[in-house]
Amino acid sequence: MKEPVLLEVRNLKVYFRNDEGLELRAVDGVSFTVPPGKTVALVGESGCGKSVTALAILRLVEANGRIAGGEVLFEGKNLLALSEREMQRVRGKEIAIIFQEPSAALNPVYTVGEQIVEAILLHQSVSREKARALAEEMLHLVGIPEPRKRLNEYPHELSGGMKQRAMIAMALSCRPKLLIADEPTTSLDVTIQAQILELLRELQRQIGMAILLITHDLGIVADMADEVVVMYAGKVVERGTKYDIFKRCRHPYTLGLLRSVPRLDVDENALASIPGFVPDPLHFPEGCRFRGRCFLEDETCATEPPEVALGDGHVVYCHHAALSEVCHGER
């Protein structure tokens, strides 16, 4: 399998230090690739390290954290080895990010228009008027009514979903080669969500943009993704095409994840959920980190699970990958 690769994350590790000086291994040896023009979805339980992974790709790790190892290869060059100046040219222009929380990205003291215009001017040689027209056009594309008036508003004057769309407009305004979208539509109703997803697809067709899509909405994954990476407690537990994951998944965690989705097209009363809670990075179990919550575990799980290749890029990290296959009929 020799696919072209736009982004390759290799054995990435991001560790934080807490107040007591203890080390939290939030992201611990994560590897995956994003082919050009394709959509790769990153899914997994809350706190498993998705956002930290996304931020680390752009080297935006919080002050109490550090990238403790690994490589981030973008078009073959290791981003972790670039100077901060070189990195600034990559951010926004080559790789743009939509942050999980709009308030983290939008500055409350500038109007939405000023912020989008600045972002455009930073990476494109156009006049201020042109940039403003472009900003208005972008707001229109993300479905914000009366975009010209909205350009003059401050973030707090916009609804949650409008802030999110303003951020999407800003990220897309420079037509990046890779878009990292961290829960891009959580504040949007389904009709606007459909419109935004269509816009992303359209840009993908037009400029061949690739997307690393972080979402907990498996409906969106089913709709948008080509490939899916499943994370649990700082590690990748399974990786494969969308069909591998939805139809032939092998990791007990992935199975549990798929079973806990409420669906509009299937009637059910109580939601299934995976027993227990996500462990805190300070207390990750030895061996397989899913231990304690897994229905297939036994003594062997106390050791690091092996990588099991199931063909065509479908990979699972589990001692009992062979057993889990029989569990599929249940749903």
Binding site: V43, S46, E183, T186, H216, L257, S260, P262, L271, S273
Partner: peptide, 12 residues
Amino acid sequence: EALSSLDVSVRA
């Protein structure tokens, strides 16, 4: 939107 950032299993 109290559950919007939660993955499905935690949301459940």
